[in-house]
């Protein structure tokens, strides 16, 4: 039992040291926030003023949103699998 606890503690220590896992929230949240900002910008400056000038913001926002969500799902799954293994 104690041996197992020591192993778990050691793994947690190693995980905390792995900088890339600290990057994970950043890699997921930043693109989502920026894509929503693009969509909001389109809504405020384009949609609410009935201007098609800002449709580019919508297109870029949606591209960033869907492109990132598609990759974030397997990325999060890989991190979850790691946690289970540990």
């Amino acid at each position: 039992m104690e041996k197992r606890n020591i192993k778990i503690k050691e793994n947690i220590r190693k995980l905390l040291l792995r900088l890339e896992l600290w990057f994970a929230p950043l890699l997921i949240i930043v693109p989502l926030a920026i894509s929503l900002f693009f969509v909001q910008d389109w809504y405020i400056r384009g949609f609410s003023t009935s201007s098609s000038e800002f449709n580019g913001e919508l297109l870029i926002g949606l591209l960033i949103l869907f492109g990132n969500v598609l990759v974030d799902i397997p990325f999060l799954r890989s991190i979850r699998l790691l946690r289970k293994k540990e």
Binding site: P31, I34, I60, I64, N68, L70, F75, I79
Partner: peptide
């Protein structure tokens, strides 16, 4: 030795770069 999936990490970094359009 911790088996973090480097493959998906690299992919996520690529798609993250689209945020630079900000």
């Amino acid at each position: 030795a911790i088996e973090v999936d480097a493959h998906w990490f690299r992919r996520a970094f690529h798609t993250f770069a689209a945020s630079f359009l900000f």
